[in-house]
């Protein structure tokens, strides 16, 4: 009786709202609430103990957390810049290809097709100090007679993870930037040549301003991606050795499922989301500015 008084749009949208509430809103609210409790998976009743901001205070005053936070930012910065430069280079090379460009574009996308877990295993094998391909190659070439402990040395381990990450995702940049290159008009480039630009100046003053919005779109997507890096790290080092590759989300995962401290892990997670939001806002600002600069009409 009462239902029939609701208007048709409300009725029709109701199931969708219901599903969304069940799978998004309720878990979100529950996790947010649990970040204010000392909830442990092993002590279900602890979910009902409200402790206010104590989890957050613990997180903020935890040295381990800030180290993981800082390392994540460092990892993000290095990986994104490397992917950006390599992707740009790849895109420029592929755009110059007269024949087989389609094939090259497809090949370029291969790394994106692999599951990150598999990429992790693959690189774990490549970087293995005893049987790994990389040490084997270095030794065969006579560059070293040492077995370099790629995944065991604290600094090298993060480097190795960065290599795996860059390998698997450079093509995101390459493809987006290539799209920009293919879409950009030829005339301004020719005008720049006539105006006296060397190829390098043409790139600096004409091509790059055109590509910037595309690069920033890739940056935005990838910063979210890298900020939640978990799978490759989990497989390759599991945060080790001695937490030297612990990133935000591996720490969150360990706290939640290893230590079963769900409330604390949720507090960390909400904190980590702030980082992602900051990066996204930053890149969207840059993107808007770059778009305005080239007078883009999209």
């Amino acid at each position: 009786m009462k239902l029939s008084r609701l208007s048709a749009p409300v009725l029709l949208l109701f199931p969708a709202f219901l599903v969304l509430a069940a799978v998004v809103v309720v878990p979100l609210a529950l996790s947010f609430y649990s970040s204010f409790t000392p909830f442990r998976l092993t002590k279900p009743e602890s979910l009902y103990v409200f402790i206010g901001l104590r989890n957050y205070i613990t997180v903020i005053s935890s040295w381990d957390f800030w180290v993981a936070f800082g390392r994540t930012v460092l990892f993000l910065t290095i990986a994104l810049n490397a992917e950006m430069l390599l992707g740009l280079g790849l895109a420029l090379l592929v755009s110059k290809a007269v024949r087989g460009q389609r094939l090259l574009r497809t090949l370029m996308m291969f790394p994106m097709m692999f599951s990150p877990v598999l990429v992790g295993f693959q690189f774990k094998f490549l970087f293995n100090d005893n049987i790994g391909l990389i040490n084997n190659a270095l030794q065969s070439l006579g560059l070293t007679d040492q077995a370099i402990p790629w995944l065991i040395n604290g600094n090298l381990a993060l480097f190795s993870i960065t290599v795996a990450e860059v390998w698997s995702s450079t093509s995101v940049f390459a493809i987006l930037i290539l799209a920009g290159l293919l879409a950009m008009p030829r005339d301004p480039i020719e005008a720049a040549h006539v105006d006296g630009c060397t190829p390098l100046q043409t790139f600096r003053y004409v091509t790059w301003p055109y590509l910037m919005p595309f690069a920033f779109i890739a940056m935005t997507i990838r910063s979210l991606d890298v900020a939640r890096a978990y799978d490759i790290v989990k497989i390759m080092t599991d945060g080790g050795p001695a937490k030297r590759t612990e990133l935000l989300w591996t720490l969150v995962g360990r706290t939640a499922y290893g230590d079963a401290r769900m409330g604390m892990a949720n507090a960390m997670a909400y904190f980590a989301i702030v980082l992602s939001i900051l990066f996204t806002v930053y890149f969207f600002r840059k993107l808007a500015a770059a778009r305005q600069q080239i007078g883009a009409e999209w």
């Binding site: 008009p185 005339d187 301004p188 020719e190 005008a191 720049a192 003053y205 004409v206 301003p209 055109y210 600069q293 080239i294 007078g295 883009a296």
Partner: peptide
């Protein structure tokens, strides 16, 4: 140029 070819930025 026919399309002006100005630098939009």
């Amino acid at each position: 140029f026919q399309s002006y070819a100005l630098y939009p930025h």
